[in-house]
Design a protein around this nucleic acid. Structure first.
Length: 594
RNA sequence: GGGGGUGUAGCUCAGUUGGUUAGAGCGAUCGCCUGUCACGCGAUAGGUCGAGGGUUCGAGUCCCUUCACUCCCGCCA
């Protein structure tokens, strides 16, 4: 028999009445009636009410016990009368009549209450994460995370994938985010980098002939935090397959994600198959490459309207002449919305750094007319043309913005979210997945005008390699794809380029000569020359998947021991100073910061 | 690196136009209470109003600087 307990705190039921039991757990709550004391004892599994009265010699000791003390109680399971049954907890039909108890772990005064639905500052939660994790919601989130990971692992095994570990101490790569570096004692002046993803290793695994690989892989990127992005480290379901095309990857991942989301969430799945949206279309219609398809609003380009003679909205016309574009969002049947609705959105847009969002509503008396501040600038013929172009109906409103393409995408993307929220158009009880496909291989840095890889340098360009026009690098598309769910980027993947000559060619466009490629990616480029299979893969973000399933807005709610926004672990005091001896061993000298 | 928000008791928060000794709930301590499940009742302790400077007869409140936390932009192949 176990020294500490015969049952856990969510085990005893009516059938156990009269049984002599022992339970161990935390004192969740006390209710002291002076001569009668109730103690809610809590463990990982649940809560059991324990009771003791003044007749028992232990009464006065238990009366004084601090909340969150860990105790073992022994006693008999007793029935509760009908009036005193607690339907809120699973053990609510019984209680333990305490005969004896023992303190297993005492507790000093708490910095934050455990038994409470109050919200606390992140600072205190992260500093005392071990207390925070005792609280119901986050405790359940972490359990959910464990179950999701184990389900995925099981599914991947069934699909014939093999799980491998890849090195954590590896080499720095010139592309991508900033690396976390680890100085090498045995190689003075040289550094390891923590992997931003096991990208090269998983490709090497394919070259090694293992066919299907996966890993719940830690990834390290030294980038600033966001609500959906932990600083430092996160986990990906990293996977790679040999002898596959884009379609094969889609087939596997779609099924896996749908199965996972069906199993772990009650929310509706909007699509049985993920819609596929080309990158360029996504930028136009949604203003970004992570569209929230729960939002029915679509952005449309109406620049041509502003070249018409019978449109007299001179500010926009002038901007259009100098290369700006005009895009709009049509809202259905909003003619009766109060003026404040429109003005709030315009005001909001100005706060976002835009010049504002112009708007008018299409009305028809005898003729079409635009109602609203700028409605008068449009002739009825121009409104007809606008209706043709946008499929807007009478009674709909049009929000428009005019700017250079990049800025226009930014503001219309934000406006699309904002307007949908104001009109309550987003179904919070749904998951809307999609693929964003056909990413360009290269992009031009706005400031430096230098051509660089837009996504992943190891992606295979689309089309016959012999026919690709390398003189127009910005037109080259890649077999590169993302999965987006509810506006959150969940995964990124690609069919890889396994042809060394093609790789050199593409790297040369991004400014790396053969020697640099050989140096920086020696392991991989070398391997590709020794018989590499065509291969591809993807890497869904585990933390974000769990975040969506747990219906949380912040990734720290599904991360056991997260760092704060400044990438500090307030509980472990990381990062921390190191002593001179260690620095010396590592051949490091610290430069004092002024 | 930049912008927004927040910072008052251990925790969550209130604090009016600048005006007496800065309040509440929870928690803590002490007392009362035998059926609660957010138990109830009474009392006590607990404050560098994030820090520094300024304006003022007087600052939690106004101004400047700064720090911490957070959200966002940049960044995230």
């Amino acid at each position: 028999m176990n020294k500490y307990r015969s049952h856990n705190c969510n085990e005893l039921r009516k059938k156990d009445i009269d049984l002599k039991v022992s339970l161990s757990g935390w004192v969740n709550k006390k209710r002291d009636h002076g001569n009668l004391l109730f103690i809610d004892l809590r463990d990982n599994y649940g809560i059991t009410q324990c009771i003791i009265d003044k007749e028992n010699t232990n009464f006065s000791l238990l009366e004084k016990i601090q909340l969150e003390t860990v105790i073992k109680v022994t006693g008999r399971v007793v029935d509760r009368s009908d009036e005193t049954v607690n339907r809120e907890i699973e053990t609510g039909e019984i209680e333990i009549s305490i005969e004896n108890f023992e303190v297993l772990g005492s507790c000093i005064e708490l910095p934050m209450p455990i038994f409470s639905d109050q919200e606390y500052s992140e600072e205190i939660r992260l500093k005392y994460r071990f207390l925070d994790l005792r609280r119901k919601k986050i405790h359940e989130n972490i359990i959910l995370r464990s179950k999701v990971i184990s389900f995925i692992r099981h599914e991947m095994n069934n699909l014939g994938f093999l799980e491998f570990q890849t090195p954590i101490l590896t080499s720095s790569s010139p592309e991508g985010a900033r690396d976390f570096l680890v100085p090498s004692r045995l190689n003075p002046g040289k550094f390891y980098a923590l992997p931003q993803a096991p990208q090269q290793f998983k490709q090497l695994i394919m070259v090694s002939g293992f066919d299907k690989y996966f890993q719940i892989a830690p990834c390290f990127r030294d980038e600033d935090a966001r609500a959906d992005r932990s600083p430092g480290e996160f986990y990906q379901l990293d996977m790679e397959m040999s002898f596959v095309e884009q379609e094969d990857v889609f087939e596997i991942v779609e099924k896996l994600l749908l199965k996972t989301f069906k199993k772990f969430s009650k929310k509706r799945l909007m699509f049985d198959r993920f819609p596929r949206i080309p990158y360029s279309e996504s930028l136009l219609k949604y203003g970004n490459d992570k569209p929230d398809l729960r939002n029915p609003l679509i952005i449309q380009d109406i620049t041509e309207i502003f070249t018409r003679e019978d449109v007299s909205f001179e500010i926009f016309k002038k901007l259009v002449k100098s290369g700006s574009k005009v895009r709009c969002i049509v809202t259905k049947n909003t003619k009766n919305k109060p003026r404040s609705f429109f003005d709030n959105i315009d005001k909001w847009a100005k706060e976002q750094g835009a010049s504002g969002l112009a708007y008018f509503t299409i009305e028809k008396d005898k003729q079409l007319s635009g109602k609203g501040p700028i409605g008068k600038f449009f002739s009825h013929q121009s409104l007809e043309a606008l209706i043709d172009l946008t499929q807007a109906k009478i009674g709909d409103s049009i929000f428009l913005a005019c700017a250079k393409e990049r800025e226009l995408e930014r503001i219309t993307s934000l406006a699309r979210d904002k307007i949908a929220k104001d009109l309550d158009l987003i179904d919070e009880n749904a998951f809307a997945f999609c693929w964003v496909v056909d990413y360009p291989m290269f992009k031009k840095d706005e400031e430096t005008q230098i051509i660089e890889f837009s996504h992943n340098p190891f992606s295979m360009p689309q089309g016959n390699p012999d026919k690709i026009d390398f003189n127009k690098p910005l037109d080259i598309l890649a077999y590169q794809y993302d999965i987006v769910c509810n506006g959150i980027e969940l995964s990124s993947g690609a069919i890889r380029n396994h042809v060394p000559e093609l790789m050199y060619k593409l790297f040369s466009i991004a400014g790396y000569d053969k020697k640099q490629v050989d140096e920086k990616f020696s392991g991989m480029i070398n391997a590709l020359s020794y018989g590499a299979p065509p291969h591809g893969g993807i890497a869904p973000g585990i933390d974000r998947i769990v975040m969506l399933l747990a219906d949380e807005k912040n990734i720290r709610e599904v991360t056991m021991f997260p760092m704060n926004q400044n990438a500090q672990d307030l509980m472990m005091n990381a990062p921390s100073k190191i002593d001179e001896r260690q620095l010396k061993e590592l051949n490091l000298i610290l430069k004092s910061k002024k």
